[in-house]
Amino acid sequence: MEIRVEQIGDQETEYIEIGCHVRDARVNELVRKLQLWQGRVEAFREERQYQIAIADIYYIEAVDERTFLYLEKDCYESRKRLYELEAMLEERGFVRISKSVIVDLMKVTAIRPALNGRFLCRLRNGEDVIISRKYVPAVKAILRGEKGGGL
């Protein structure tokens, strides 16, 4: 694929255009990557497609083979699996806190103990999400800056 970069005037809106014979999986992947680079992910609600700003996502949960994006008040469904979103959003401060949840650390206001060696993350919108015992050491290491987490 030939890559062309054209310089445009200050008054014009910057754009990326893809010229292709067929809009196949390869092109769709490229589009998704560009959207992510711009800070958006594709999501659905009532059969309608939306572009959700990553900065608006509080946490992502997998329930019965389906993946849901939770914003301050709204909830959208993603067609991606949790591990795919985890890999995509790791660099944006999202961290796995249990088998079924990844959370944006920037949206967490406090961590409190729950029963049984688990912890609760209180989010800015007042919701609580559980850090399961298995993930506590990894979360601690990320918070101390000893391990990835993309921050």
């Binding site: 961590i111 103990p113 912890f119 979360v139 601690k140």
Partner: peptide, 20 residues
Amino acid sequence: LDLRTANAMTEDLRRLQQRA
């Protein structure tokens, strides 16, 4: 004991958020 750990984690979180 968990409360002590949670407070330390919250402190680390605040530092991380400030850095970011």
